[in-house]
Measured scan of single mutants.
Amino acid sequence: TTTITTTNEEDARRIATEWKNKGYTVHVEKRGTTFRIEVR
């Protein structure tokens, strides 16, 4: 599992989409101002 964190919502969406397009399972969680993107 790879975890990526960013405070930028646009980055979070872009990163999540990129990983999904590669065939990975992506889970995005917002904690306060931080977005945690888990890639499996």
Score class of each variant (00 low, 15 high):
Asn8Cys: 08
Ile37Gln: 00
Thr3Gln: 06
Ile4Met: 07
Glu10Leu: 10
Glu29Cys: 14
Glu9Arg: 08
Val39Trp: 04
Phe35Asp: 00
Glu10Ala: 12
Thr3Asn: 06
Ala16Glu: 07
Lys22Gln: 07
Gly23Cys: 04
Ala16Ser: 07
Arg36Asp: 06
Glu10His: 09
Trp19Asp: 00
Thr7Arg: 09
Thr5Glu: 13
Thr3Ala: 07
Asn21Lys: 11
Ile15Glu: 03
Val28Gly: 01
Thr33Pro: 12
His27Ile: 14
Phe35Val: 04
Arg31Glu: 13
Trp19Ile: 03
Thr3Phe: 14
Lys30Gln: 12
Val26Asn: 00
Glu9Asn: 04
Ile37Asn: 00
Arg40Ala: 09
Arg40Thr: 14
Thr6Pro: 02
Lys30Ser: 06
Glu29Pro: 00
Val26Lys: 00
Thr7Gly: 08
Ala16Arg: 03
Glu18Leu: 13
Thr34Tyr: 13
Gly23Pro: 00
Gly23Ser: 02
Val28Trp: 07
Gly32Gln: 04
Arg14Pro: 00
Gly32Val: 03
Thr6Ile: 07
Ala12His: 02
Lys30Pro: 04
Lys30Asn: 06
Arg40Val: 12
Arg13Met: 14
Ile15Asn: 01
Arg14Ser: 06
Tyr24Thr: 01
Lys20Asn: 06
Thr5Val: 13
Lys22Glu: 04
Val26Met: 01
Thr34Gln: 12
Val26Arg: 00
Trp19Cys: 02
Val39Tyr: 04
Thr1Gly: 10
Arg36Gly: 03
Arg36Ser: 10
Arg31Thr: 13
Arg13Glu: 10
Thr3Asp: 04
Lys22Trp: 06
Glu18Thr: 07
Val28Tyr: 05
Glu38Tyr: 15
Ile15Phe: 05
Arg36Phe: 15
Lys30Trp: 07
Thr3Lys: 05
Gly23Trp: 02
Arg31Ala: 10
Ile15Met: 05
Val26Leu: 02
Thr34Glu: 14
Asp11His: 09
Glu29Met: 10
His27Trp: 12
Asp11Ala: 10
Asn21Pro: 00
Arg14Asp: 04
Lys22Cys: 08
Gly32Ser: 04
Glu18Ser: 08
Arg31Tyr: 13
Thr25Arg: 10
Val39Thr: 03
Glu10Ile: 09
Val28Cys: 09
Thr1Ala: 11
Arg40Ser: 15
Lys20Leu: 13
Val26Gln: 00
Thr25Asn: 10
Glu10Asp: 11
Phe35Gln: 01
Tyr24Phe: 11
Glu38Thr: 15
Tyr24Cys: 04
Gly23Asp: 02
Arg31Pro: 02
Glu9Trp: 14
Arg31Leu: 14
Thr1Gln: 09
Arg40His: 12
Arg31His: 14
Lys30Phe: 09
Val26Glu: 00
Tyr24Leu: 04
Tyr24Ser: 02
Arg31Gly: 05
Thr7Ala: 10
Thr2Glu: 06
Arg31Ser: 12
